[in-house]
């Protein structure tokens, strides 16, 4: 394969991570926030891949697989919680949830 600059790969990962972070800070809907968390996780995993490719070892990929597993579990539970909130009639707005409004 043609040579690739690892700095660009890491930079890509960083950009995606920051975008995910900004998304969390800006969006108020719980679903969107979870989504942006996923973006961040994905970006972090990508950084692992880049690092593994640099040393031509499988360790990076292994980490990414673990990360996938974790992301899967997290999304499952998170979405279940969101559904629970939704069924109770609470607004899915993190600001009003944070202030602990009464039902």
């Amino acid at each position: 394969m043609t040579p690739v600059s690892f700095e660009y790969g890491l930079a890509l990962a960083a950009i995606l991570f920051v975008l995910g972070l900004v998304g969390i800070l800006v969006r108020r809907n719980l679903v969107f926030m979870l989504l942006c968390t996923e973006i961040m996780l994905n970006a972090a995993g990508f950084a692992f891949i880049v690092a593994g490719a640099r040393w031509a070892q499988s360790d990076g990929q292994v980490m990414f697989i673990f990360l996938l597993a974790m992301a899967g579990a997290e999304v499952a539970v998170g979405l279940a919680l969101i559904l629970l909130l939704f069924s109770r009639g609470r607004p899915l707005d993190v600001d009003s949830l944070s202030s602990g409004e009464d039902r």
Partner: peptide, 26 residues
């Protein structure tokens, strides 16, 4: 991009698991 980094396996996994399962859940 992962493919181009030589990580074909995780590229496939990304599509299958991440895009295919997690995103579908969403």
């Amino acid at each position: 991009t992962m493919l181009f980094l030589g990580a074909a396996f995780v590229a496939a996994l990304e599509i299958i698991v991440y895009a295919g399962a997690i995103m579908v859940l969403f």
